[in-house]
Design a protein around this nucleic acid. Sequence first.
DNA 1: CTAGGGTTAG
Length: 658
Amino acid sequence: MVQNLSQKLHCLQVKSSPPTRFLEEKFISLLRSCRTSHHLLHLHSQLTTHGLIHNAYVTPTLITTCSLLNKMPHARKLFDKMPQPNTATWNAMFRGYLHLECHLQVVVLFGEMNRAGAVPNCFTLPMVVKCCGKVNAVREGEEVHCVVVKMGFMSNPFVGTSLIDMYSSRGSVGDAYKVFGEMHQRNVVAWTAVIRAYISCGDMVSARRFFDLAPARDVVLWNTVVSGYIESGDMVAARKLFDKMPGRDAMSWNTMLNGYASNGDIELFEKMFEEMPERNVFSWNGLIGGYARNGLFSQVLESFKWMLVEGGDVLPNDATLVTVLSACSRLGALDMGKWVHLYAESIGYKGNLFVGNALIDMYAKCGVIGNALDVFNSIDRKDVFTWNTIINGMAMHGHAADALSLFDRMKNAVVKPDEVTFVGVLSACVHMGLVKDGFSFFQSMFDNYSIVPQIQHYGCMVDLLGRAGLLDQAVNFVRKMPMKPDAVIWAALLGACRIYKNVEIAELALQRLIELEPKNPANFVMLSNIYKDLGRWQDVARLKIAMRDTGFRKLPGCSVIEVDDSVVEFYSLDERHPETENIFRALRGLTVILRSYGYVPNLVDVAQGTVMGEVLQTTTLTRYPTYTRQSCRDCGSKIRKCHICRKKISNSFKLFHG
DNA sequence: CTAGGGTTAG
């Protein structure tokens, strides 16, 4: 009874005349735990009724909460109504914009701060300096530098370091060093910043000198210099320093892992992963992504499965899923891709834009454009990647009309088309033979979107003219190109010459192709096929000798197929599989059945060596596939099996089990 | 209310 009464009294006291400080603290803690915009609006109105909406202590926290909930416009409205915001409130605005990466807003707002006569402090300046660097605001950056000096903030390590970073990001190492020299106290972060400045301009010698001079070195500084050596391509120096490190953290190991991967040293790459004392999600992504970067897509899937089994607490994240899905696309591993789709949703990546875009691409490349569309439609906030992927996917599937209508929809959405969009649009025109429309799209790239056409777009145009049979126009177009035509351009022309049996232009194209890539036997095969079509057997023989003299043999095209849980690669008449006999027996059986239904095989292309892989090689050229084949370590040849030194480069024929 | 280092898509 007594306790109850005192509680009531206490409540009354608080309600009638609460000490302001108490209320302020209460609201600050409520705002910090606020997680929804609904709750935020509620608190906002409460603050208004308590007359605390322009409070010096509460308002900064309110603004911070707005920014965390993606409500900066709301914060801005409130902020603009304040008669005289204090520095902490200004800072909350800067931090909010910085958090959302609205760097330009920060620079603009700082101008307003000066005009309003408000005074920045040591928290304001690093944020503003950083943003000047981000948006490349050179003049503003120098003005802020002057403010720093005038207000005596050069002694503040945060301010000084931010200035070093700014000058470093615009490539002015000299200015970065000058700031470093003028700093009153230099901690290890400042040393790291100046060393980073030398690394980013490629001066590893100076970077190393400063590293050796530094009074203290922590693990971040060590890692910075190791990755500097990697960036400069010096894996040996990176390794030497790595071995000398007094304490390595997970990032040290991952840095080396990625270094070996980007230098194509698969052996050391794998060894590095095996030796790692601890593996976080970045380590696994390093392994998976390293295989992907080196074109070893089966190993991508294999190591992903290994991660699921052996990763322990480490779960894949969006980066993992995207890499694995793109490997599925490259391999045509649809079953695996579908599984990854379900798995991604089960671990909470249903709404992830990165994953969604990768799924669209995977379904499109695996031939199920319907599923690609389903994923596309399920994404509500589509970005330029989403649109480009579906447009290119549609074009690739021959749904050119759909690709073009999607392009129309894209224009109505707020997403601005880019150069990749136009590759899809133009290749849709190629498929439909829309020469006129193609040219008008090509023209509108620059006129309406200020996109300067790249060589890919010129390639599409050559393809467009060539496939429409307008070979002379195509040659003229190539001659008038503003850049030097590359092999893809000439190959497109050569391909068109085969369709229309134009020997004269074919010979011209081949001549250019031989100059550009003397090692690629596919070019000879193409011309040889044209001669064959025309029955010019003497020329075929002559070309065969010329081809032999180059010393290179054409790589047989290969196919990949998903079997159970694995991806298997095979060539025409391949006999490497342990069950070759059974496979061929089954095939013979199938042929008998097919023939009994009246099927007559077309052996002409097979006889000419135009197996699937070659068709792919010639028809996908204009799409500039990013497919990279492993290069031979000894002779640099970009082939799967080096025909010069006869070494097998990647273990591409490999079954794996889940 | 403060800084420096890693991965992913067309």
